[in-house]
Structures are given as structure tokens and as C-alpha cells.
């Protein structure tokens, strides 16, 4: 099987805190991979290591069969990323941001113009294309970040919480767009706290907890007949039942 993303013993620490602890990811090419975990589990740090924003301490990473240490630029040419934090110039307009990305990716002017126009229209940003990003709402920034990730027509998308703050109509359009992307052979590596989205879109799932990958496989293997929520809670360990605690809460 060909893997779009493959890691072995991927480890990243910050001082005494091990954020990613010997993680072995295996994301098949053409998969829609949902990467789940509680807050602070290590999802965003993993994505930052995979996209070259952070350097792992231990382990190996292969992205589209390439080694980030030697083929960093080749990988970046074939991937689109929405990091956890807003990766946008505050003092560029939405249109200028997409122009920058197009130029860095070496897209021809007419191609860039057409893609930019289509993306801005699809995401409902055409009216705000000339506005500075600093004046965008949170949802608009997320949409622009998605446009940035999609513009170079990548083979692999890393999306960290792409639906956060997005309105239902745009969310519906983005889901369709991502499904079409995977249908044409692309790979999506997506984190989200909305399990319904993962359950609906993903065909593969990985669950990370306290830096360790606790479950990974096809969605059918992971859920084993349960809902994804049940499988998730089983994997990460449920907190004390609410009924037995907080009795003071009326």
C-alpha cells in the first residue's frame, strides 16, 4: 500500500513535556484521514512536525514518499496546509494573499487569476477580497486559509480544525469540496473536534491521547459497530460520569 503520510517513532518534546510520543502514523494515499484527540493531545504539534513548521526530535517522516529533511521544498509544492494558528499576513488583502501563494508556487498569471476568483466566490469571500485580513472575522480568516491551502491544487491537504467558526452553508460547501478532492485521488489529513464531520467524511481515523497514538485504522475497524463518539471515549478514557459528580449543579 502507498502511504501519503507515514511516520515511525515520531517524537517531539517541549522541555519536560512530551507533546508527541513515538507516533506511528500510516495514512494511505487517497484517504480521508480524521485525526482526533482531546484538547492538548498533540494533534497540532503532530501537524506542525508533518508540515515542517517544527522539527521532530526522534523518528522518521515520509510525506508522499519523500523525506522532509532532504525534500522539504518538493513536499511543500505538493501539499496545502491550514495550521492551528492563523497563517496569514494581517496587512495583506485576501486577494493579495492568494496572489502571493500563486507566485510562490509558480502558477501562471491567468491560472492564478481563475483559481483565485473561483475560490473566493465559492467561499463567499469575493466581496471581501480587497479588504485587509486584519479586518476579517474569524470565520473569514478560516475560509481564506482554506483557499490558500487549495490554490496550488495540492496532492495532500493538512487541515487543522478547518470548520472552526465557519457558517453552515460554507461548511457544507467545504465538505463537498473535500469529498470531491479525495474522490479525484487527493489525500486529506484533517483534525476536528466535531466527530459528526469526521464520521461523515473520513474513511480512516487515528486517535491521539497525551501524545500517543492509541487507535488507528479504517473507520469501520476503529468504531467496530459503535458510534465514533463511543469509540473515541473508549480510546481516550472517559472522565468520571457527570451524574456522579457536580451534584451541586442543581
Amino acid at each position: 500500500m502507498q502511504y501519503a503520510v507515514q511516520t515511525t517513532n515520531l517524537t517531539k518534546s517541549f522541555g519536560d513535556t512530551v507533546a508527541v510520543d513515538h507516533v506511528d502514523l500510516a495514512v494511505p494515499a487517497g484517504a480521508f484521514y480524521g485525526f482526533l484527540g482531546p484538547n492538548g493531545a498533540g494533534k497540532s504539534t503532530t501537524i506542525k512536525c508533518l508540515t515542517g513548521l517544527l522539527r521532530q526530535e526522534q523518528g522518521t517522516i515520509r510525506i508522499l514518499g519523500l523525506d522532509p529533511r532532504s525534500d522539504d521544498l518538493d513536499i511543500k509544492r505538493q501539499t496545502g496546509v491550514i495550521p492551528e494558528d492563523e497563517a496569514l499576513f494581517e496587512r495583506l488583502t485576501g486577494a493579495e494573499t492568494l496572489t502571493l501563494v500563486a507566485r510562490v508556487h509558480g502558477l501562471a498569471g491567468s491560472v492564478a487569476q481563475q483559481r483565485r476568483s473561483e475560490l473566493l466566490t465559492l467561499l463567499g469571500l469575493d466581496g471581501a477580497a480587497g479588504k485587509l485580513v486584519v479586518d476579517y472575522s474569524h470565520g473569514m480568516r478560516k475560509k481564506l486559509a482554506l483557499a490558500v491551502a487549495l490554490l496550488p491544487s495540492p496532492r495532500l491537504l493538512f487541515l487543522d480544525e478547518p470548520f472552526e467558526g465557519i457558517d453552515p452553508i460554507a461548511s457544507h460547501q467545504i465538505k463537498e469540496l473535500l469529498q470531491r478532492f479525495v474522490g479525484r485521488g487527493g489525500t486529506v489529513f484533517l483534525t476536528s473536534h466535531i466527530l459528526e464531520i469526521i464520521e461523515r467524511l473520513a474513511d480512516h481515523v487515528g486517535i491521539i491521547d497525551r501524545g500517543r497514538l492509541v487507535v488507528q485504522g479504517t473507520i469501520a475497524e476503529v468504531t467496530a459497530g459503535r458510534t465514533l463518539e463511543d469509540a473515541f471515549i473508549t480510546a481516550v478514557g472517559a472522565p468520571p460520569a457527570a451524574a456522579r459528580t457536580l451534584e451541586w449543579l442543581g
Binding site: L53, L73, K76, P83, A87, L92, V148
Partner: peptide, 12 residues
């Protein structure tokens, strides 16, 4: 700020 992160994920 965020612009630096964008430059970090672009093929530069």
C-alpha cells in the same frame, strides 16, 4: 506573526 507561518508552509 501569522504571515511568518504562511511563509513557513510555502515552498520557500
Amino acid at each position: 506573526r501569522g504571515g511568518q507561518l504562511l511563509e513557513g508552509v510555502l515552498p520557500l
